[in-house]
Design a protein around this nucleic acid. Structure first.
Length: 574
RNA sequence: CGAGGUGUAGCGCAGUUUGGUAGCGCGUUUGGUUCGGGACCAAAAGGUCGUGGGUUCAAAUCCCGUCACCUCGACCA
């Protein structure tokens, strides 16, 4: 590709709306253009990157016996009604009517289409297991798109669906797919992507993992053990607490005028927040019912865990007085019997707490739940903390970090096959319901994540495997005849050898050419210049600045070829 | 959906408080001199000031509505 023939433009100024590196560079470098909220057109440079990512995905899916299919973007509502998701998913699913008034949806995921495709075809146990996948457009009407390609409404996804006749077989294949995912990320140049245990959310199913690129700009909170391989999304991370029990105290009601926060009360009573009980009030979706969650004073409620325990949606409570609650002074003792109460496991570890007395300006000290409340159920509804106890190895080695979710895998079970009536005849002649796994990776988000992980202050540093071009050929002073002749010759020969070259043949200053090259992020750069020609050399360097050499002109072609190969091998040999 | 913010030339912004008929930098075009890390000189093109209404002799500026976008939160296979 010659630069002068390319539709592209770069910007010197950081766009006003960009916050994170990948977004800034991908706008400044002319990678994409915003069309609407969370909707982008991609320029050739990005399309080349995503195409390469897709090729890697295809190879790895095919390697584990995946079969590529293509589901429709627009589907009739019927199959979504069968699975129940037409009604259970809120506004994220775009619904509309066709000209005949039929309800239609835009595909945001394709479990329904996969079951619809497979259910009449795979009617015997002999046809299992199998996996089908596609790489295709999804539309999700996200409440808030952000971060360039990190979170968009329309995007390309590789989604795969496997079908099995037993839990054991699903688990076996799930592990294989987990490995395939590791290979995909490694081959895309981000071997640092980790998998974490995750909440299965609206997908259903029990076991699920998310593949995360750890970065401060990530949207998810992760809990990672520094000492063993425990890694979980904050949403699902289980919590273990050390025993703080110092024996029972004497239950006393004390005046705490205007002390409404845990910090105020504990400071006033000269106590550590660890020895207090915090109350957080929620309302449940269905019946307006109030729920009070009690947790150790220094900890936070994990609302995903609480939601999962209650099996219902929860919202921050309004109008506490209506429920007979005294805001700021809520405690376990004397609370209205009509209110559902949940105790976090952190409260199990002590018998001597400060807590609200359920009347204005009063707290208890010396409360023992066991003695003063009785037998209660303790539920894990807390947020993991930095330096907390690892549930696997038991050491105080938990660390909190942020991550971008670049992929996920689920053991779905029979949620879709059962609701949509998929059956097969088993060996013994009986009809059975198969079970499913599903596996997704967002293509554009992965591209942006690679940029997030690999850039410097000047622009992206694309790994050779997914770089838009393998070599950037810069002709400094292309108005100079010898420069042009040598650069043209190199360009022709490299192209003929199957090497992808972006040939910057513009007559512009070196500074502009190098800045643009930095923004394009091509991993190998070749500079042909009058100065080099005078010395009989061309300059070859790596974008990451780890290598720079002046090579004799007649050896340049072989050196470049060799470098491209070794840079590819470096990533692919895993 | 809640809170905050922004809409003025392709991009980044000033002008809005105090109404007087639109400006700067970058980019673009032309000519010239330079040119191995975002060069310089000269000339030029490019804007119904998001949009609808109102007040006024006069609105980018004041008032009301509306739309879009951004940030934080909520939400999220």
């Amino acid at each position: 590709m010659k630069f002068t023939a390319m539709l592209t433009k770069r910007y010197k100024d950081t766009p006003a709306d960009c916050q994170i590196a990948s977004h800034i560079f991908m706008i400044r470098g002319g990678y994409m253009k915003n069309v609407g909220n969370g909707i982008y057109s991609l320029f050739p440079i990005t399309k080349r990157i995503t195409s390469k990512i897709e090729s890697i995905m295809r190879e790895e899916m095919d390697r584990i016996d995946g079969q590529e299919v293509l589901f429709p973007v627009v589907m009739p509502a019927g199959i979504w009604r069968e699975s129940g998701r037409y009604d259970s998913i809120a506004n994220e699913l775009v619904r509309f009517k066709d000209r005949s008034g039929n309800d239609m949806v835009l595909g945001m995921t394709h479990e329904e289409a996969a079951v619809q495709l497979a259910r009449e075809t795979a009617d015997s146990y002999q046809q299992f297991p199998f996996m089908i996948y596609q790489i295709q457009t999804k539309f999700r009407d996200e409440p808030r798109a952000r971060g360039g390609l990190i979170r968009v409404r329309e995007f390309t996804m590789k989604d795969a669906y496997s079908f099995h006749t037993s839990k054991e077989d699903l688990e076996r294949y799930y592990a294989i797919c987990h490995k395939a995912y590791e290979r995909i990320f490694a081959r895309c140049g981000v071997p640092e992507v980790i998998s974490v245990k995750s909440d299965s959310g609206m997908m259903g199913g029990k076991v699920a993992h998310e593949f995360m690129l750890c970065t401060p700009v990530g949207e998810d909170s992760l809990v990672v053990c520094k000492d063993c391989d425990f890694r979980a999304n904050m949403e699902t991370a289980e919590c273990v607490y050390e025993n703080l029990n110092t024996g029972e105290g004497e239950l006393k009601k004390v005046a705490t005028p205007e002390m409404k926060t845990i910090e105020d009360v504990c400071a006033y009573l000269n106590s550590d927040t660890k020895y207090s009980i915090k109350a957080v009030v929620y309302q449940q979706e269905t019946d307006d019912a109030y729920v009070v969650a009690f947790i150790r004073g220094d900890l936070e409620i994990n609302e995903v865990k609480l939601r999962n325990y209650l099996k219902s949606e929860i919202y921050p409570a309004q109008e506490l007085e209506k429920a007979g609650l005294t805001a700021g002074f809520i405690g376990p003792k004397g609370i209205s019997k009509d209110i559902k109460v949940v105790y976090d496991v952190s409260l199990k570890t002590c018998d001597n707490y400060v807590c609200g007395a359920n009347e204005a300006n009063c707290h208890y000290t010396g409360l023992s739940i066991r003695r003063d409340i009785g037998d209660v159920e303790y539920v894990d509804i807390g947020k993991a903390i930095e330096g907390g106890i690892c549930p696997i190895c038991g050491k105080k080695t938990l660390s909190l970090t942020r991550g971008i979710e670049v992929g996920n895998i689920f053991q779905l079970g029979d949620k879709y096959t059962a609701s949509m009536g998929m059956k097969y005849i088993d060996k013994d002649g009986t009809l059975k319901t198969p079970i499913m796994g599903c596996y997704g990776i967002g293509v554009g988000r992965l591209a942006a994540s690679v940029c997030e992980a690999h850039h410097d202050e000047y622009g992206p540093i694309w790994p050779m495997t997914i770089a838009p071009w393998q070599v950037q050929l810069c002709a400094l002073r292309s108005d100079n005849e010898s420069v042009k002749a040598l650069a043209d010759d190199l360009y022709e020969r490299l192209q003929a050898a199957g090497i992808e070259v972006l040939y910057d043949d513009r007559q512009i200053s070196a500074g502009v050419m190098f800045s643009d090259a930095d923004l394009t992020g091509i991993p190998l750069r070749v500079v042909v210049s009058p100065k080099g020609i005078a010395n009989g050399t061309v300059e070859i360097s790596k974008r990451d600045k780890s290598y720079m050499e002046k090579i004799e002109t007649d050896k340049a072609f072989d050196s470049i070829k060799q470098l491209v190969k070794s840079m590819l091998d470096e990533i692919n040999n895993i």
